[in-house]
């Protein structure tokens, strides 16, 4: 489905004609809509997976519904996304110049089912008995990034939310123990935010880019010569 409408403008415009959903997806969506009412902001089909965007205040409730009403007993993951365009590491003229990184669009665009702002938390839950799954998304305020924690519904959300918290700086209200998971406790910054530059690439271009590296002591002028 290459004609999938994926680019959304920043607003929360309702799509007049929702994408075609399979019967199963429609049934799943109907449960969410019936239980949450206005809690469902938007929905879309992403290559066979139903994506439902939930209002932030219904985030934990949506997990409960998924678990109890939809038999989604299995938590696949909880993660975050930063929709801001990447800070390109090519501003630096001497040495930097990592032209290997793919060029992404420079304006902020949102993916399937839209977003209210820069940060979103998304999760995927599945049913081991009915064999269906649904991706849930919720918006997170960019200034005060917090979402409701799912740990009371899915204990497995614990580590996922800890990871998301350290990587995106998104807090989870109701999480028992939101320490850092991977990173050392004194680490500053949130690596998966788009404005967190990959320093290794700033300092030195990706070595795979150069076929033949100049030997040490080789006087032939390098491309970034000091002159």
């Amino acid at each position: 489905m290459p004609d999938e409408p994926t680019e959304e403008t920043a607003g929360e415009e309702e799509i007049a004609e929702p994408e075609l959903l399979t019967d199963e997806q429609a049934a799943l969506l109907a449960v969410f809509e019936a239980e949450l009412g206005g809690g469902v902001i938007e929905h879309a089909d992403a290559f066979g997976t139903l994506v439902v965007r939930i209002r932030p205040d219904s985030w934990r409730r949506s997990a409960e519904i998924a678990k109890t009403k939809l038999h989604c007993d299995y938590l696949s993951f909880v993660s975050g996304i930063d929709w801001q365009p990447m800070v390109a590491p090519r501003s630096n003229d001497d040495g930097g110049n990592d032209t290997s990184a793919p060029v992404q669009p420079t304006e902020m665009t949102f993916g399937t089912a839209g977003s209210a702002g820069r940060f979103q938390v998304f999760a995927h839950v599945q049913s081991t008995s009915r064999h269906h799954g649904v991706t849930l998304k919720t918006d997170v305020d960019a200034d005060m990034p917090t979402a409701e924690s799912w740990t009371s519904v899915y204990p497995g959300a614990d580590w996922h939310e800890r990871e998301c918290a350290e990587m995106f700086g998104i807090g989870f209200s109701g999480h028992p123990n939101l320490r850092k998971l991977y990173l050392p406790a004194e680490f500053e910054g949130h690596p998966l935010r788009k404005d967190f530059a990959l320093l290794a690439r700033e300092v030195k271009p990706w070595p795979g880019l150069v076929d033949v590296e100049a030997m040490p002591g080789d006087d032939s002028p390098a491309e970034d010569g000091s002159g």
């Binding site: 696949s76 993951f77 990447m86 990184a101 793919p102 993916g111 998304f122 995927h124």
Partner: peptide, 16 residues
């Protein structure tokens, strides 16, 4: 699993 978000470039925008 991979949750791949593409914005039409040669590389992904986000890979979970």
């Amino acid at each position: 699993g991979y949750y791949v978000v593409s914005k039409g470039a040669t590389g992904p925008f986000r890979v979970k």
